[in-house]
Each structure stands twice: as C-alpha cells, then as structure tokens.
Design a binder for these strands. Structure first.
Length: 273
DNA sequence: ATACCGACCTGTCAGC
DNA sequence: TGCTGACAGGTCGGTA
C-alpha cells in the first residue's frame, strides 16, 4: 500500500487532472466494506459537487467539494479516501473497461470518470463536513523538537512508534525500515531508549527518504498504480526493505528480517545498533 | 493507559 | 499443472 510518498504522488496527479471538474453522478458497488459513510450519503454529497482542492493528509487523500448556488449544499464538505493496502483512484475514460474490485465510479462533467478500485478492501471512503485532520503530526512538517517528544517514555519499539499514525501520520512499513536503516537504529530498540543524537539522525533520515520517494513518484512494488492508471513508477533503491538475505549496501552483511508486532522489519545487524 | 495480536480481504508467488 | 502456505504498502477492536 501506498505510504505517504505514494499518496502524495496520487493526490498531485489527481489535482492536476481533475481539479475543477464536477461530479454528475455516482455509482457505488454492492460491497460495503470500503465505506465509512453510508453509500447514500456519499453519493448525495458527491453528486453535483465541484472538485476543488485535492491534497494528501497523512495517508489520506482529501478532496474539498464545492457547490455553487446550491442552498442545501453542505459547507466545507470533503471527500476522504484512504487507499488501504491495495486501493487506487484512477481517472478513466468512460469507455474504458471497469476493472474487477471497482467500488465507486464518479462520472465527471468532462466525460471522464474517477474510479476507486481496491481488491483487498482495506481502503476506506467517507465524506465529512469539517476540515479533515489526520490523527498525528505530518512527518514533513513537524519540527525536530516536537518529533523527539513523540518518543519520550515510550517502551514500544521505535519502529512501532514510527508506524503509529496517532504520532506521525503517513509513515508506513517501507519508509519506517528505510529511515531506521539510514539512521543506523535497530527497529526493535525501545523508543524511549533512542538517544537525542540518534533521534536527530532519524528525523533527518525520515525527511530525506520521504522527499526522495516523492521526487521519484513513490515506490512501486506490486499493485501500485498512479492516478492515470499507469504502472511503472520509478522506485528509489531500498536499502533494507524486501532485501532479506541480500548484502547490506554498506558492509555486505546479509539483511535480517524479523517480525515486530505482526509486521516485517528489515535491518542490517552490523550497521544498525 | 499502553501495547500486542488476530481479523479484515484478495492476490501472488515459491515450493512441492 | 495444481495445491498449499506464507506473505503483502494498513488499520481496528478486543484483550492482557
């Protein structure tokens, strides 16, 4: 699934292509799993709305909806999309074949369609009336002092803290591993036991890896497709993620894979302390 | 209050 | 070929 850089890339792609377009009608599939708001409410809110500002908030795509001259129009309505593990939002021509696991199709005034596709259905769709806020801090906006405070007194492994969306919104499994690798910190270290100097390295590493990945258009492994439906995103070189048994790029020691609270963690036992 | 752990789903891939 | 099991970018809610 898409982590922060991929969601950022998708949000930018959508913003570029559909900002200003108007949703004329909405079709929602039978499967209700991806819906956090009732289907009726989603359809009613989207239909007739203009797609205004489109941006990333944590791992969510937030789309401001405008309704000119409609009295019943909800003020500040937003359409919130979370892609889960395998979700994608594509801009399709109306004659383009509807792929399997398509859960929502929004017909646009321009003749195109916005489609939400999600095989595993871990993604979520909802509409909200107030400005949507991610539960935690934006990794690319937080300053170092606040970042360091997030980990104080936490006994949980540093990696679990990075993945905790209530602390930081947007960091996922790949970039948590990659940031820890760049910072030379083992994923299992207790968060509270990571020194201030190490946290500084982690902060810098996280900013760096996220910026690099955004610049590269997100890391693509399997299901990742951009908002145009094109595959083949340029991928930044992962130093540890998915490289179990392969040599560390620095010291050649085979990369280890362990499980931390049910998720894979990859690291170099020699370079990361 | 925190922190693990399984559950939620489908698809893919390696190994037999 | 086909079967089986492990694993996948994420979050929840229940339980300890």
């Amino acid at each position: 699934m898409p982590e922060l850089p991929e969601v950022e890339t998708i949000a930018r792609g959508l913003a570029k292509r559909v900002t200003g377009d108007v949703i004329e009608s909405v079709w929602i599939g039978e499967r209700k799993q991806p819906l956090l708001s009732p289907a009726r409410e989603i359809a009613a809110t989207l239909e007739g709305s203009r797609l205004a500002k489109i941006r990333r908030v944590g791992k969510h795509i937030a789309i401001d909806l405008e309704r000119d001259g409609r009295k019943r129009a909800p003020e500040h309505a937003q359409w919130i999309v979370h892609l889960g593990m395998t979700g994608k939002v594509i801009v399709a021509e109306s004659d383009q074949q509807v792929e399997k696991h398509t859960h929502l199709i929004a017909k646009l005034a321009s003749g195109r369609e916005l489609r939400f596709v999600d095989p595993r259905m871990f993604g979520k769709l909802k509409v909200v009336r107030e400005a949507f806020q991610a539960p935690g801090r934006e990794p690319l906006e937080i300053n170092f002092e606040d970042f360091a405070k997030l980990f104080r007194g936490r006994k949980t492994p540093i990696k679990s803290a990075l993945l905790n969306q209530k602390l930081l919104s947007g960091v996922g499994n790949i970039y948590a591993d990659e940031a820890l690798a760049r910072a030379g910190i083992r994923p299992k270290r207790r968060a509270a036991a990571v020194t201030r100097a190490e946290l500084r390295k982690l902060y810098d590493a996280l900013q760096q890896v996220l910026h690099e990945a955004i610049a590269a258009g997100g890391s693509s492994i399997n299901d990742y497709v951009d908002s145009d439906g094109n595959e083949g995103f340029f991928q930044i070189q992962h130093r540890v993620y998915g490289r179990e048994g392969e040599p560390c790029l620095t010291c050649k020691t085979p990369i280890k894979r362990i499980v931390i609270s049910g998720r894979s963690a990859h690291y170099c036992a020699k370079c990361q302390k």
